[in-house]
Simulated scan of single mutants.
Amino acid sequence: MKDALLLRGDAVHSPIQIDHPDWSSAFDHDPARTADHRRRLVAELAEPGTIGFGVHFADVVFKHVQQDGDGPPWRPLDA
């Protein structure tokens, strides 16, 4: 298990893009390339011990990805 903090920057603008990395925003200049980057980023965020940080999600900026099919994959750290 690793401990890592991954800064998302402008790769993800909405939590729905964690579930649907192919969905682009108006700011994506190359949607196909950006979607590929988002898919790799979500896979990295799903690694155990990895915490995601980003300011575009106003509710909670520190979360992790949990892809167990039970609820949304983008979850606060205590979930």
Rank of each mutant, 00 (worst) to 15 (best):
F53A: 06
R8V: 09
H20L: 06
I51P: 00
V55Y: 09
H20V: 03
I51V: 05
R8D: 03
G9K: 11
D3H: 08
R40W: 04
S25H: 04
L45V: 12
D22A: 12
A46S: 15
V55K: 08
D10S: 14
R33A: 14
D28A: 10
A46Q: 13
R39I: 09
V55S: 11
R8N: 02
L45I: 10
F27T: 11
V55C: 05
L7T: 15
H37L: 15
W23D: 09
D36A: 14
A43R: 14
G49T: 01
H29E: 15
V12D: 00
H29T: 13
Q17G: 01
E44M: 05
D28P: 07
D30T: 04
R38M: 06
F27G: 12
A4I: 04
S25K: 04
A26N: 04
S24V: 01
T50F: 05
R39T: 09
H20E: 05
P31W: 12
D30C: 11
D10L: 13
R33S: 15
R40E: 05
L45T: 06
W23Y: 08
H29W: 13
L5E: 07
E44A: 10
E44R: 10
S25L: 01
G49R: 02
D10F: 13
E44Q: 10
D10Q: 14
D3A: 05
E47A: 02
L5M: 07
G9W: 09
P21M: 01
A35F: 10
D10G: 10
R38T: 14
A26D: 04
I18R: 00
R33P: 03
L41Q: 11
R38S: 06
R38E: 11
D36Q: 15
F27C: 13
G54I: 10
R40L: 02
H13I: 03
F27Q: 14
H37P: 11
L6A: 06
R8Q: 04
D28M: 06
H20D: 11
A4H: 03
A35Q: 11
T34R: 12
D30R: 12
G54Q: 12
R8Y: 01
W23P: 02
L6G: 06
F53T: 03
W23M: 08
P48I: 15
R8H: 02
G52F: 01
A43I: 13
V42Q: 10
R40T: 07
F53E: 03
D19Y: 00
A35S: 13
R40M: 07
A35H: 12
D19H: 02
G54D: 06
E44N: 05
F53W: 09
A11L: 13
R38P: 08
P15S: 07
D30G: 06
G49F: 02
F53N: 04
H29D: 15
S14T: 09
A32F: 12
A26K: 02
E47D: 03
S24M: 03
D36K: 12
L5V: 08
S24K: 03
H29R: 15
A43P: 15
R8P: 00
P15E: 04
A43L: 13
T34E: 13
G54S: 15
A35K: 08
D22F: 09
F53Q: 03
A43H: 10
H29Y: 15
V42Y: 08
I18E: 00
P31A: 12
G52P: 00
D3C: 02
A11Q: 10
P15H: 03
I16K: 02
V12P: 00
G9C: 09
P21L: 00
I16E: 04
L45S: 10
